[in-house]
Design a protein around this nucleic acid. Structure first.
Ligand SMILES: [Mn+2]
Ligand SMILES: [Mn+2]
Ligand SMILES: [Zn+2]
Ligand SMILES: [Zn+2]
Lengths: 146, 146
DNA sequence: CATGCTGTTGCAACTGGTCGCAATAAGGGG
DNA sequence: CCCCTTATTGCGACCAGTTGCAACAGCATG
């Protein structure tokens, strides 16, 4: 399933004086068949599977361009590594248990109190998709042995 | 000013079967004269200033050990790089404007609503010192030209 | 003070990503 | 269809760490 935003990408780029290249087409093809989260290096791998001549810096630079266009958003995992969200998708952050390693999505609803209070108290607008909250999940905090 | 926790460190290590080495002493000396935040590579540099033979992996491994002991905590800047908090210090996270690049501390008080709602709704205990919230600050969201 | 167990170091290779620069090639205008 | 401007690529060096391994050295013990 190809969403309309992928089809119009070449023109959206050209309208900004940017260019549509074979290397960008490879990455966009990979992204358009990706759902959920991907790390940068996973994207490099998948591009290399399509075109073995893929150069990492080209992929990362294209990801920057695509993020400017709003086509992807990046965040960072608990180790600081980049994670990309492919749009359109509900904006969300991540919750990560540093004890068992499990991750959960943090919906706008879950984060509402944070987003609201920062906006109210400081006028600060949170970029939720960039957020990863680390801590300990219920199961790891309270290991109930029956 | 050397806090008591620095002086007792050698013994705290030995009590755990760990060792007090010249390399660790250099790092601990550097840490004890550091206030606020430092990145990992800054610490490597400062250690190298004391002992030019400093090896990065040794510093990072020692930082891991010190974090287990609760002497430092790490978080990640907006770019994913490590940032260390030297204790004792009030636990806090960070707020970073991706537009102007300014950072602010995010106190437990500022984050209270988030911490509480995650604990209430999911039993999740937030490690605030690991959190960096990225977004746009009041000045960048609303550029009021007089 | 000598011995030995094992935690720690130094080193080198590797991962994920960034950067500067010269060569290449989109793609708009003539 | 050719030209020219300039965005983009490929490449190599570099930054921030991480990891496996063999050599080394704390330190507890006798
Ligand atoms: Mn981390
Ligand atoms: Mn980021
Ligand atoms: Zn857990
Ligand atoms: Zn700002």
């Amino acid at each position: 399933m190809t969403s309309p935003s992928w089809e119009s990408l070449p023109d959206r780029l050209r309208a900004r004086g940017l260019r549509w290249t074979p290397q960008r087409r490879v990455l966009v093809d990979v992204l358009s068949s990706t759902r959920g989260h991907v790390t940068g290096s996973e994207l490099v791998e998948r591009c290399r599977a399509v075109d073995p001549a893929t150069i990492p810096s080209t992929v990362y630079r294209t990801l920057d361009v695509l993020e400017d266009l709003g086509v992807v958003r990046h965040g960072h995992g608990p180790d600081g590594r980049e994670e990309f969200h492919v749009l359109p998708e509900a904006e969300h952050g991540h919750l990560h248990c540093e004890s068992c390693g499990t991750s959960w999505d943090l919906s706008l609803d879950d984060a509402r109190t944070l987003v609201r209070s920062l906006r109210a108290r400081r006028g600060f607008v949170v970029d939720l998709s960039h957020v990863t909250i680390v801590g300990r999940c219920a199961g790891c905090v309270d290991p109930t042995p029956p």
